[in-house]
Design a protein around this nucleic acid. Structure first.
Lengths: 178, 178
DNA sequence: TGAAATAGTTCACCTCTAGAATTATTCTGT
DNA sequence: ACAGAATAATTCTAGAGGTGAACTATTTCA
């Protein structure tokens, strides 16, 4: 679907900000997915390529952590990207349990394409706003994200190290909850 | 998943606004889903109840149009809500092909709960911002939504009337983007 | 009246993903 | 050094959620 989400607040008052945010977020994701599909990638594929671009040699396990995905999910993701020659698995020489994941040259080319796509996407999405408004929006969203602990994708290793259980802050909520 | 989406722009510059929007939108949707789950509803259920609250007597077909869903999907949605005694199907006396859908008293109670949930949700989501910032954000998001034609949920009937076909890009998924 | 359109339903199927069980390897304490 | 616990990756089963095609009942229209 797309916009199953709500707007339960009574109409009229500007109480539908959360709803708008969900809507726009879904629309943005969907548009982005359209664009990546044109070069044969799912958004998940793109996420993997992006991460491997900035952190080459990552193991599947930490990739899973950073994506907020489960390890078995990563297996099929990498399988698929490897079949298409975009990613390669290299057995770690120091710990032969895990792989070091790398982008191939083709993978790096795709990464560059992806950056272009992201730029276009950003431009298209923000087209209805003035430069000033864009800055404003960026700040507001960043503040929101911080306020809700939606930080960079790093900290997951930490989470993992630390509270094997005990997640009082309900943190990034992932996993949990089921 | 959750945040499969991108942040492909080079780090540093505030070029990740689209990414932030996707992230926050997904987070908002997910939080809302958590809350509705607590009263035994999926976000889709909540959407149906909301629409039937403001437009009682709707047919399944136009409900489908407004939700952006396919008719068969609506069948199971209504089946489920009817089994739980929240919605009832009444054969239209003027056109016995379709039903008039109504909330039962229990359904109306759930709708009220849902409004409370939406308010809490809104408050929690926007907690990191000042009142002034909330107003700003609301305006920016509204402007974005307008700019991208994410209007109210009505206009789908129009879409339906108009371009019955005309899909040159062969776009396999999305029911024609609205 | 007969053909086409429309509302709803059924059903078979598809994709996505989670979670448990399995194998290989490494680490730990004694 | 060795038994047992922990960790990385993989395989496989299963379930949610959703789509599209075929079917029935009713209405519209020429």
């Amino acid at each position: 679907m797309y916009s199953e989400d709500m707007d339960l607040a009574t109409p009229g008052r500007p109480r539908r900000t959360a709803f708008l945010l969900s809507q726009l977020g879904a629309a943005a994701s969907s548009r982005f997915a359209d664009r990546t599909r044109e070069i044969g990638l799912t958004p998940s594929d793109a996420g993997v390529i992006r991460l491997l671009g900035r952190a080459p040699g990552l193991s599947q396990r930490s990739l899973a952590d950073r994506l907020g995905a489960v390890p078995s999910r990563v297996v099929s993701l990498i399988d698929s990207l490897q079949e298409r020659g975009l990613v390669e698995r290299v057995r770690s020489s120091t710990d032969r349990r895990n792989y070091e994941l790398h982008l191939t040259d083709a993978g790096k080319r795709v990464l560059r394409e992806l950056r272009g796509i992201a730029e276009q996407h950003e431009a298209e999405l923000l087209a209805p706003l003035t430069d000033e408004q864009i800055t404003q929006l960026g700040e507001l969203l960043a503040q929101l994200a911080n306020g809700h602990g939606l930080d960079r994708d790093l900290h997951r290793d930490v989470v993992r190290q630390a509270g094997r259980d005990a997640g009082p802050d309900g943190g990034p909520d992932r996993a949990r909850k089921a």
